[in-house]
Design a protein around this nucleic acid. Structure first.
Length: 269
DNA sequence: AACTCATGCGAAT
DNA sequence: TTCGCCTGAGTTT
């Protein structure tokens, strides 16, 4: 479930669970054994999210970099004994024990998991656009990029060097809410529309962090179950056959190599 | 048991 | 534009 909201939620949760503590770091699967050994038993100073990247600042001065890709997941377990790893666990972080239960944080399936000098983090951030979930985000940077580009807006939204953190679901949903055809060139979008699009993305991502899921549909339009939602159940167009607003057949168009769902009626050319 | 699919992204073509 | 990689859940044989 990794778009930017997932990463920011992980940063918050892992800050609460692990920061300020001495952490045992291992790689049950083995593929991260060298990295784990470098920081094992040191203190986690902070956890930072930037777009879809997660950074662990370790007491050694080195920085852990995690990118979940499409399949990556974290699992957290609190228990009196450290559980045996379930499935492929690339990185395991454990605190607690003694008088309190163990907290085990397992990472599986990431695209990236490494321990690097600070310059690597700086280089990664340098090639990212503003992250709508960060206080230091400068919306104008993203809006200007889009307003000058002849690329389709649907491609621009997935370009992490334009906006960091938007993925395939939020792209489709934010464009729908703003009634913008994903194929329209960025520079063919009036700037007030691009500003509104940014605000929509901020609101959607924040809600995603709060609820730890993607549920973009306005609650007034749908009573949503509190738990996990099925695909297409809490979206306007993403993975839907029929438009929730007007009943038109939803279409997809490939943009930036991935299908972008849209309503041809609500998002006219 | 086999197969399909997924909210990502960089390298190869 | 396509391919390959990373893993697990859900669906189909």
């Amino acid at each position: 479930m990794p778009e930017g909201h997932t990463i920011h939620r992980l940063a918050k949760d892992q800050t609460r669970l692990l920061v300020g503590r001495t952490v045992r770091v291992t790689s049950p699967q083995g593929r991260f054994a060298d990295g784990a050994a470098r920081i094992d038993g040191t203190v986690l100073e902070s956890v930072e999210a930037y777009g879809k990247h997660l950074f662990h600042w370790w007491g050694t001065g080195e920085i852990g970099h995690v990118h979940l890709g499409l399949f990556g997941k974290f699992r957290v377990e609190r228990s009196d004994a450290v559980p045996p790893p379930a499935g492929e666990v690339r990185m395991r972080m454990v605190t607690g024990g003694g008088s309190e239960p163990f907290t085990t944080v397992d990472l599986s399936g990431p695209t990236a998991c490494s321990i690097d000098p600070p310059e690597v983090r700086a280089a990664i951030i340098a090639r990212l656009g503003p992250d709508p979930l960060r206080r230091d985000a400068k919306p104008a940077v993203a809006i200007e990029r889009m307003a000058r580009s002849r690329q389709p807006i649907g491609a621009l939204l997935l370009d992490q060097s334009v906006i960091a953190g938007v993925g395939n679901v939020f792209r489709a949903e934010a464009l729908f809410v703003n009634r913008i055809d994903p194929r329209r060139a960025g520079r063919a979008c009036p700037e007030p529309d691009l500003e509104a699009l940014w605000r929509t993305i901020v609101a959607m991502l924040r809600k995603g962090v709060r609820e730890d899921r993607i549920a973009t549909v306005d609650p007034s339009e749908l009573a949503l179950p509190r738990g996990r939602v099925r695909r297409g159940e809490a979206t306007y167009v993403y993975h839907r056959d029929v438009c929730r607003r007007c009943g038109s057949a939803i279409r997809t168009v490939a943009l930036a190599g991935r299908p972008c769902w849209f309503c041809p009626t609500c998002q006219p050319r």
